[in-house]
């Protein structure tokens, strides 16, 4: 079995190596990937959407459908982990590790203090990454992951109960749903304003003092906030359920 696997892997590798001979050289400015669609994004992004960070404008505007469905995938994964692990009544064949006695408070004092000090700064930085994604590297996905990581850091440094007290299960679920709803809701508002789904230029009719171009910039910001909420809530949901096996008792 292992030998067959090795043969298949090496055959695949050789096929790929053979295919690579036709590929463009590394960092070639004239490679096919860089000469068809991407020059349009690079030259028109500022004029069409007023967003200098082209990655953000492509993510939120030009490829809005893709991003919306990726957010939905993250949400669906969070819900899948939740339904698989939470409150199962099936019999359990696992060998349970022995519970370790709660350590004395002074033993983890340094870890706890540093985690407590780090968390607010991480969350502040995450908000900066989300809000400043138009002008610097950042955006909804990155900021959402940093926000989720701040909660996971607290769950590791303290225990799961401390996080669940601040970020209840219901809140996490509602935030995850709200994130996807914000994204698709902004798309629906565009339809109600008689433009295409996710065509943010329609938003200039309801946002004060915005022309068509700035409306697209603001639309991207709204969408990024939705993405950040969904990613943060679902990462926390996945971590909390996986680390405590859906029982929400102690965690790692």
């Amino acid at each position: 079995m292992k030998l067959i696997g090795l043969i298949v892997v090496i055959a695949t590798g050789l096929l790929l190596l053979w295919g690579v001979t036709d590929f463009p050289d590394w960092a070639d400015p004239q490679s096919p990937a860089s000469t068809h669609l991407s020059p349009h994004f690079l030259t028109e992004s500022i004029e069409e959407t007023a967003v200098p960070n082209v990655v953000t404008s492509v993510l939120g505007d030009y490829r809005g459908f893709d991003t919306m469905l990726e957010t939905t995938v993250v949400f669906a994964a969070g819900i899948a982990v939740y339904t698989l692990l939470r409150r199962s009544r099936r019999k359990d064949l696992r060998e349970k590790p022995e519970m370790i006695e709660e350590e004395l408070p002074h033993q983890a004092l340094i870890v706890k203090t540093i985690c407590r000090l780090m968390a607010p700064f991480m969350q502040l930085y995450a908000l900066y990454v989300i809000a400043h994604g138009h002008h610097s590297p950042g955006g909804g996905f990155q900021g959402g992951v940093i926000l989720g990581a701040s909660f996971i850091l607290l769950a590791i440094g303290f225990d799961l109960k401390m996080v669940l007290k601040r970020m209840r299960e219901k809140t996490t679920l509602v935030l995850g749903i709200l994130g996807v709803l914000i994204f698709s809701g902004i798309g629906m508002v565009c339809v109600l304003l008689e433009k295409n789904f996710l065509d943010y230029s329609a938003l200039s009719a309801i946002l004060p003092a915005t022309d068509i171009i700035m409306a697209r910039s603001h639309g991207i910001l709204g969408v990024e906030i939705g993405v950040a909420l969904a990613v943060m809530a679902n990462l926390v949901l996945i971590y909390v359920n996986l680390s405590s096996d859906g029982k929400y008792e102690r965690g790692l």
Partner: peptide, 23 residues
């Protein structure tokens, strides 16, 4: 910018699908 956009979403989705697999 296009490959970066595609991979940005793919990284987050790969983490969440890994979570589903572990569950």
């Amino acid at each position: 910018p296009l490959p970066h956009v595609l991979m940005l979403t793919a990284i987050v989705v790969s983490v969440s699908t890994l979570g589903v697999a572990l569950a």
